[in-house]
Nucleic acid binder design. Sequence first.
DNA 1: CAGTGGTCTAGACCACACA
DNA 2: GTGTGGTCTAGACCACTGC
Lengths: 238, 238
Amino acid sequence: MNYPVMIPTGKISYRDVKDHILDRIRDRTWAAGAIMPGEVELAQEFGCARATVNRAMRELADEGILDRKRKAGTRVNASPIRQARFKIPLVRAEVEATGASYRYALVNREVLTVPEWLCARLDLKPADRVLHLQCMHFADNTPFQFEDRWINIAAVPTCESADFATLGPNEWLVREVPFTDAEISFSATVATERMASFLSLSVGEPVFTAERATWLQTQPVTFARMSFGRGYKLTTRF
Amino acid sequence: MNYPVMIPTGKISYRDVKDHILDRIRDRTWAAGAIMPGEVELAQEFGCARATVNRAMRELADEGILDRKRKAGTRVNASPIRQARFKIPLVRAEVEATGASYRYALVNREVLTVPEWLCARLDLKPADRVLHLQCMHFADNTPFQFEDRWINIAAVPTCESADFATLGPNEWLVREVPFTDAEISFSATVATERMASFLSLSVGEPVFTAERATWLQTQPVTFARMSFGRGYKLTTRF
DNA sequence: CAGTGGTCTAGACCACACA
DNA sequence: GTGTGGTCTAGACCACTGC
């Protein structure tokens, strides 16, 4: 099989190596599941340092294209668990990125002891107190997202005195509270009466829903359920 | 501010550097938006090579935590466009990962000229021919996913002679056809009558839907719409 | 045990972007 | 211009793991 001559312009980049490798995977020089040459061999062939090949292969492994094991060598991943990366921006940024103007409104605010379902969801104790906020996010005054947020007061004591009238809890938390772990999930749910009224939907309409929980070490920080307006799509290219 | 003494056990790893950096971001040593020391300085401080610090900071930038610019230096990302990575496995793998047994069935197969909406969606020409497949994926004989797939025959001529009775187009394509670009999006849609019957839903129920389009260079390869059964959630931790 | 990838180093040059 | 990150190199040692 013939490959294009290396560009004589200077050194080989790890990006060049990635491209070459991808080419050979595409043209089946290295079929799925097949083992490929080791780093040293490839480095010789490409005329670069092993570190360069290493970075190329490491990134490809990171992207799910290759499967690397010490001693066993590197293989082309047979069942390509391709992974997509989604950016999770702040609502404000997401809205403004579309060119629309962003508006925020606090709908409801209350302090209560944690409800059972949340207690289980976040590993809270039954007596823990939480700040419950409901907010609306608008794009050009059209309902964009309904946010149902719960904050663990024990983890974020300052939240009780915070004024969420103008700044959303989303942005406030990002600025004020660090977290170490997060879980996010997407699903399709049914619009409740309350949600429907806020989002200008009919009851029963499908709603794209995101749920996000965050922890600081092992301490639960916050849980939020974001319900998006009609027609929302989460998209990414890779 | 005091930091734990470096573990005297051998060299400093880029992972150690990452941890240290994250710690200092969390404790506000470097606040959001603030500029942080350069690579050389940090390398001195941590007692390691610049390359080590570089790798640490590069990965953090890659994860959206830091923002790096030549000459301008490195800053803590103020609006953390945290990104989540979702694995997009084959349906088979996804089902089997839950411990359930996987079953596939071809529902419908036809060759036709590309419908208008798809023509626009994939940049096809109005006269192009496509293979249209509809399939079901079951988990323990419970409907798991309904797959509506369109393959560009010009791009994948062999698909016309392929037998999709036992092997799903999903797996077949992954094995046979390389692609360079893909777009994937998720949304909440309404169950049509056909979908509802296949997925054991009621008409009008919300359906979690994934759409995926792939290209080889600039040539459209395939478009698929996957409709998931009731209660499906796409989850990730980070 | 021995081969493969994983990582660190010290040094060098380059490219971009801000002043 | 000039400082900061981006990358390559050559060499070294280590750690895991299949044989």
